[in-house]
Amino acid sequence: MSSWFALLVFPGFLYALPMGWLMLWVERKTLARLQSRIGPPFYQPLFDFIKLMTKEPLPRPSQENRFYLFLPLLALGATLGALTLLPVLPHSFSLVGDLALFIALIEIAPICLVLLGFLSRSIFGQVGAVREAVLTIASNLPFIAALIALAYASGSLRLMDIALHAPPLARGLAVLAIFACLPIKLRLNPFSVANAEQEIYQGALTELDGWRLGLWELNHAVEWVALSGLTVSLALPWRSGLAVLDAAIFALLSLAVVFLLACLAGATARLKVGQASRFYWRWGFGFALLALAVSFFPFGG
């Protein structure tokens, strides 16, 4: 299938938009049910988006304005690009070495967030940017180590080959390590340190208003689809070959991942930045090291 289909239809724009909103809703609804609340209605993320996009933007210096348009758009585009590379359908668009491209694209949004925080010249934005930078490094250590383990174990840098041919033990450990990185990459409790809404007023997002915030929320929704999708598509060792069935299984399992993450977020309280990064350096990296060891020294293979 062509790259345009992957970018614009599945698993790209047309799929990611409603799915991202659905995921944001599942997260909020799960949290509400865990707190014995009814929670927001089904279409809530869509209405939030429409409202934000139609608010009157505040006047800003033109230099700042340019960055405030450019950075959320860059983040959104990069995340959509990463999503395009997900190995969902067996004959979908893929490149040699798209694993490296995926890592590069998925890391652009956090970098944009750090830049937005520093550009805001607000103390909350800057504290949020510093925290985001520290945690990005901490979470990427196990994330990238796990992906390297998978690539080595399956002998390929192509995501589709990795998804289909990784040996089970290395795959299991690596997928666990990747899953453990999701709460920090999606800025969820207990690792919602960089966007802590109580103590630093959502950090780098403090100074975003109207459509600038709307674009960022959209990027966040697409991030949900991309990261939960990565976990699911790497965890599944087979594809049925029927595109509709594969897509449906992928969507359902992605939603299950979102549900698990929301349960974790609802059951925990926010850690300090030091505790969060220590957790990843110690435990997350431990998992990833195990995956690396298993893939470099396969047992019985």
């Binding site: 909020r28 609340r37 927001p40 209605p41 630093i200 403090t206 208003d209």
Partner: peptide, 14 residues
């Protein structure tokens, strides 16, 4: 109040 779509925001810009 989340049933009504209400959220408490930390920043007046939101």
């Amino acid at each position: 109040v989340e049933q009504l779509g209400i959220r408490l925001e930390g920043s007046p810009r939101h």
